[in-house]
Design a protein around this nucleic acid. Structure first.
Lengths: 205, 205
DNA sequence: TATTTCAGTCAACGCTTGTACACTAAAATA
DNA sequence: TATTTTAGTGTACAAGCGTTGACTGAAATA
């Protein structure tokens, strides 16, 4: 058996997983009901309130988890030494596979990024900004980029992050139909990043 | 007075406008109800069925309108002779202002692009692809791009379109708080496009 | 002018929704 | 061991939902 706190944490996770699995299966987060989530988590509706005040709070908690995931992902990608050259194949491939093995989270993210409530949108944006900032500090030391000032470097990194994330929804949609789409996505994204990279090298602030 | 057809068309427009105004005011398209839309359009719920079979069909019709709008927008932008150089300031500025004067449509688009039902998502993607294809045929003749083959040119134009659209949601959110954000958006987007453009010139397929 | 068509109305249905409240039983605490 | 705390249950309710079918009255048609 387990302690009371452990059991509570487990139910909490069930609720969050239920929401993710619903969004992952085509429902829109903002249209799924508290009751659906509770039912899917194998719990009575009123139990929901022991964990979250409403669906938005649940959403914010999912975003927290997502943030942790993304940071972990980045940390791993960084350990690939040819990082920047994170325009290198392995990183994008790694990302694509990561997305496909965490579909529900990424469906959720894509959905909420532009379709969630303003609060949720803002929370997602914060995570992406964090991501871009990390990239900045990784990339700043590179000699190729000596001609880019700090403000422009921010924009460059934003563009890179956006480009990687932008087509995630396509990746999710298409990969379900045809797993080989992962390669297409990787190839296309790679080309886009190389293009940006070429531009960055030629850039003079 | 008006003919019957005119009156019907008018109600139909009211319904579509109602949906747009609801999504524009923070509601998510997939969570607004047929009844809300009808009420907002000043019409009884059952009247809805005289025009659309369900909310998804209404959504598809909005997307059709949106497509027309975007094509008109592009046609206008094209008449600016320094077009590519549509990396030129005026085009992005024009786009930013266009977005701000058609907020509801663009809120709807951003929301549905990644957060709508699969059918609606696909419909939006088709419109964006159309947009990118137009760009391709405009850009192909340019001498700067002689070193890019057709497949890569597609990707380049995709990237350009994505980059312009990607931050539309920020533009909408922020411009409501502070109208001067339009300039920030324009400036940032412009830099991103110039970066991409530099990359494109340096590219060798 | 007489008849048909049909956009919009009205009332009613069976469901689902979020939330309030009182309850239970087992774990935590004293 | 006796008491308190609390995650999860069960019932209940008012409000909103999508959709049905029969109705109305003015515009379109014959």
């Amino acid at each position: 058996m387990q302690t009371r706190d452990e059991k509570k944490a487990q139910t909490r996770k069930s609720l969050m997983d239920a929401a993710l699995s619903l969004t992952g299966n085509g429902s829109n987060f903002s249209s799924i009901s508290l009751r659906e989530v509770a039912k899917n988590a194998g719990v009575v509706p009123t139990s929901f309130y022991r964990h979250f005040t409403d669906m938005e709070e649940l959403g914010l908690n999912i975003i927290d988890d997502l943030g942790l995931m993304l940071r972990k992902l980045m940390r791993t990608a960084r350990q690939n030494e040819d990082y920047f050259d994170a325009l290198a194949k392995s990183s994008v491939e790694f990302y694509a596979n990561y997305v496909c093995t965490h579909k529900n989270y990424f469906y959720f993210m894509e959905q909420v990024k532009t379709g969630g409530t303003p609060t949720l949108r803002k929370a997602i944006r914060k995570e992406l900004k964090y991501f871009a900032n990390e990239l900045v500090s990784d990339v700043r030391p590179l000699k190729n980029l000596a001609n880019i000032d700090d403000a422009d470097l921010d924009i460059l990194c934003q563009l890179i992050v956006e480009t990687v994330f932008e087509n995630t929804i396509d990746l999710l949609d298409q990969a379900e139909v045809d797993p080989r789409y992962i390669e297409t996505y990787t190839e296309h994204t790679l080309k886009k990043l190389r293009l940006i990279w070429l531009g960055a090298i030629a850039w003079r602030s």
